[in-house]
Design a protein around this nucleic acid. Structure first.
Length: 186
DNA sequence: AATAGGATTTCCT
DNA sequence: GGAAATCCTATTC
């Protein structure tokens, strides 16, 4: 995936990321197929961290498309986003769930569980399975050991309201593969 | 300097 | 279905 792919409207990127592969290469190679994403914008999106302008935390959202924005949620979970961007406006796509394809054993160790469906079926779950932490914040997802590869997608995509956000409004910015059991919530 | 609350997960009943 | 876990950030006094 190149920078141009991410330098577009977050909603379009979120939708097209469904079916692509998230790859993390460290000692072992971990691969998951993206089955669920959400788009977040800026001043026009009350649910977004960037709603009230730039702060220390959300700074990556204002930076170059293709960068990672990782933050800690509820003091416990690392949450992974890809920065997107149209006209330099702050925006990002949250990676909510992937279907484990490769490195299952390592993911099970990281998650301390065995059920495949529970490994990556949520934003906090997939970062734990992949070993993604705030150390990955602001890294470039094009030329680091964490990246996304384009894949043809033949399934059907469902669009819905985002999960877990207050002031989410009526905007339907969540995308997921219809019927896929690795989605956090069908 | 202090405090309120979260783009969640897990465990218990 | 409900609440605890847990800590960092942003906001307020």
């Amino acid at each position: 995936m190149n920078h141009d792919f991410f330098a577009r409207d977050a909603k379009a990127v979120a939708k097209e990321l469904i079916g692509c592969e998230l790859i993390h290469k460290e000692s072992t190679k971990l691969i998951g197929r993206i089955v669920e994403t959400e788009a977040y914008y800026g001043s026009d999106d009350r649910a977004s961290h960037a709603f009230s302008g730039m702060t220390d935390r959300n700074k990556p959202m204002f930076k170059k498309p293709g960068k990672a924005y990782v933050y800690i949620s509820y003091g416990i979970h690392n949450i992974l986003n890809v920065v997107t961007g149209l006209n330099g406006n702050p925006s990002a796509v949250l990676l909510r769930a992937v279907k484990p394809l490769k490195g299952l054993e390592r993911m099970k160790e990281n998650r301390r569980i065995n059920e495949k469906k529970e490994l990556c079926s949520g934003p906090g779950k997939l970062t734990e399975a992949f070993g993604i932490t705030k150390d990955h914040n602001r890294i470039d997802l094009i030329d680091s050991n964490l990246w996304i590869e384009e894949r043809e997608f033949k399934g059907k995509i469902v669009r819905d309201k985002r999960i877990g956000v207050s002031n989410g409004g009526k905007m339907e910015l969540r995308f997921y593969e219809e019927g896929n059991s690795h989605v956090s919530r069908l």
